[in-house]
């Protein structure tokens, strides 16, 4: 909060915004292109790395975190870090339930409402558009 990082009136050159915007478009193109290849589990990894890169570009340049007081970057970082802890610890549970108790590992299929009255599959409805 001290004015050591005073950047009031700090105007980024137009070039920075346009370059970052162009990079975001290119990365969007790359992530769609990569998804056409079957990389097994690495499809998700690559997609998330590209999304994280895009996210950091937005945060660093559009949201000025790269130039601003580092306190704001810490707040942002803490949010991300705690979500990571939240998801990882939760998945330690949900991924390991079946190892401990097979009943807990059962999918919830039998209880789902759509299975109660399921008519025969009608081909007219099965046209997915893609």
């Amino acid at each position: 909060m001290k004015s050591g990082s005073n950047n009031h009136g700090h105007v980024l050159p137009l070039r920075v915004y346009l370059t970052v915007g162009a990079a975001l478009f290119v990365l969007t193109g790359i992530t769609v292109w990569v998804s056409t290849f079957n990389l097994g589990p690495y499809n998700l990894v690559v997609a998330m790395i590209i999304a994280a890169t895009k996210g950091l570009l937005v945060a660093f340049f559009f949201m000025h975190l790269f130039y601003d007081n580092k306190l704001y970057f810490m707040i942002f970082g803490f949010a991300i870090a705690f979500i990571a802890i939240f998801i990882v610890l939760t998945m330690f549970d949900t991924q390991a339930r079946a190892d401990v108790n097979p009943i807990e590992g059962r999918v919830i299929q039998p209880e789902a409402a759509i299975y109660e009255q399921k008519p025969a599959l009608s081909p007219a409805d099965s046209s997915v558009h893609k």
Partner: peptide
Amino acid sequence: DLVWIFLFPLFYLIR
């Protein structure tokens, strides 16, 4: 925008 950047690959680009 940031949230959508993550939603897009998670829903539209599943392999």
